[in-house]
Each structure stands twice: as C-alpha cells, then as structure tokens.
Amino acid sequence: MILGQYATPQAIESMHHRLGLDLPIWEQFIRFVQNLVTHGDTGTSIVLGTSTRTLIAERAPVTLLLIAMASLLAIIVSIVLATVAATHKNGVLDHLIRILPTVTLGMPIFWVGLLLIIFLSVRLRWFPVGGVGQGLGGMLYSLMLPAITVAFAHIPTLVRSLRTQMLEVLESDFVVTLKAAGIPNRVILVKHVLRNSALPALMLLGVNISYLIGGTLVVEQVFGIEGIGSLLFSAISNRDFPIIQGIALYCAISVEIISFLVEIASRFLDPRTKGEL
C-alpha cells in the first residue's frame, strides 16, 4: 500500500524489513506494545507518514470540545424537561415531554443533523452550515449546531430516567414532611429531590457519554468538522490501520476515564456514602 501497485519485489522486501514485518508475529506484537506504552503511539500512518499520536493530538481538541458541549447541553435540557414533567404529573406538559422523546429516540443522528442544517443553517441562517470557526468564540458558535445534534440523541433516555426517579422521590415520606414544615417547593426540588434523583440518571449519563463519543465521530462527517471523526473515516477508506487502531484505543481509554469520573461523582451524590471515596 505504501509503495504502490507497481513496486518491485526488492522494494517490498526492503519495506518489510524497515517496518519489521519480516519478524515473527510475537516479536512484532511486543514491539507494538512497547511503542504503545512508551510513546502512546500505534505506529506511523501508512498514507500520511506521520505518527498516529501526532495526528490524533492535532484533531482531539475540536472533538473533545464538541463532546463537552453536547454533554453539557444534554444535561441542562434533560434536567429542565424532567423537572417540568415530574412537577406536572399527568398534565399536558408531562404527556408532551413523555411522547416527544419516544418519537425522536428512533431518529438516526446523521438524519437529525441534516434536518437541522436545512432549517437552522440554510433557511434561518442562525448557524454556519459546517466547518470550525476561528478563535474560541468562533469555535463555540460553529460547534453549537453539531452539539445540539449529538445531544438530541441522548436527551430522551435521560429525561425518562430522571423523570421516573423524581416522581419516586416526590412521593416519598421525607418530601411530604418537608412540605408540611413549610419549606418552599423550589428549595425542596433543587436541594433534595434533584440530588436524590440524580444518581441513577448520572450512571445512565456515563453510559450515554460513551455512546456519545461514537455519535460525535459521525456528526463530524455531517458538518464537515476536521476532528477525530473525519480522520477516522478517512483512515477507514484508505485502510490506514495504524490510525484506526490509535483512534479505537484512545476512544476506549476515554470511556474508561468517563466511567471512573462518573463513579467518583456518584459517591458524592449518594447520601449513603456522604461523599466518601
């Protein structure tokens, strides 16, 4: 693949020796692991001739910012919708909030992105069609619509989970006691109900963020964002295996880090542990 289809046998043999492909498979694997542990690298790109660590590091900031924006947006919208639904149980707002997420849950994320581009970018011109702007403000503005697209796919499950937990807490004895004591509903809702309801939703959020990483890579293609997603799809089309390995590895590490952070946050939210680690 590196030398092209017209490479001579001598050139192929020389390239095999340079890449270490003439070594036993176990020795190749040991070299691969050593390079991975010492340099955090899965090798050199077959097409670009650059280390995968460098290529991923150049694209990572945009992707990480998009994931952070989508996660924050999903959390804020889910809390607001779940709170409204729980405090208006069996009302019109409750039914709307319960029905709409069920309808939108089956929509493919790339299709949602295309619809948002048509209506919010092409027709209303509220957001750019694609690409990443200059500077922090330009990046945040250009990534807002992709972040909405990514969050759109994860809000329904979070709303349903948080609403169910909030209803259970609202009907518990200690909430009835707090209301009888004359404590304002706003204080009860924010200080007691949300905290006691957040733990299961937080665990679900940790799982969703893991899926959100994969969804972000697809959305980057839809919006023409030069992030890890575009690098991955380019590597797949070119069969650039070192880049594919590197992205898969770093995504797996990111999932483990997110799971660890969610576990720490759950310890602080769980009243039984009282913030103990």
Rank of each mutant, 00 (worst) to 15 (best):
L145A: 10
L116T: 07
R123A: 00
G137E: 03
T87K: 10
V132S: 03
M139S: 11
G133Y: 01
L140Q: 09
V122T: 03
A85M: 11
G131I: 11
G113C: 12
G131A: 10
V103C: 02
L124R: 01
G91F: 09
G113S: 13
L115F: 05
L115M: 09
P128L: 08
L136E: 13
A86Q: 06
A151V: 07
M139R: 12
M107Y: 04
G91R: 00
L136N: 14
T104H: 13
T104K: 07
I148K: 00
T87A: 06
H95E: 08
L140Y: 03
V103L: 05
S142N: 13
G137P: 01
I117T: 13
F127H: 05
M139V: 09
W111E: 01
G138C: 01
G91I: 11
H88D: 10
G106W: 04
G113W: 06
M107D: 00
L116H: 09
W111P: 04
H88N: 15
T149L: 03
S142W: 05
I117L: 10
F152Y: 14
G130S: 14
V150G: 02
P101Y: 05
V103I: 09
L116C: 01
F152W: 12
T149F: 00
L93G: 15
I118N: 13
L124W: 07
Y141H: 03
T102N: 08
H88F: 12
L143Q: 11
I118K: 12
N90R: 15
L145D: 07
G135I: 05
A147T: 00
S142L: 10
I148Q: 01
W126M: 14
M107E: 03
G130P: 01
F152M: 12
H95G: 07
P146M: 03
L120E: 01
G130K: 08
T149C: 02
I117H: 12
H95I: 09
I117C: 06
H88R: 15
F110I: 15
L105G: 09
T102D: 02
L120G: 01
L145P: 00
G131Y: 00
I148L: 02
I109D: 11
G113K: 07
G138I: 04
P101K: 08
S121T: 10
A86L: 07
G133R: 03
P146H: 03
G131V: 02
Y141M: 07
L115Q: 12
T102Y: 06
I117E: 12
V129W: 06
S142M: 11
V122Y: 12
V92G: 08
L140M: 13
L143R: 08
R98L: 09
K89R: 02
H95A: 07
L93T: 04
I148W: 00
I97M: 11
V84E: 02
G138D: 05
L115V: 10
R123L: 08
G91M: 10
T87P: 02
V150E: 02
L120S: 02
R98S: 06
T102I: 04
W126Q: 10
I117Y: 07
L96H: 07
L116Y: 02
M107Q: 04
L120P: 00
T102P: 00
R125N: 11
I118L: 10
R125D: 09
V92I: 12
G131C: 11
L143S: 15
W126T: 13
T149P: 00
Q134M: 00
L114N: 01
G113L: 10
V112Y: 01
M144I: 13
L100A: 15
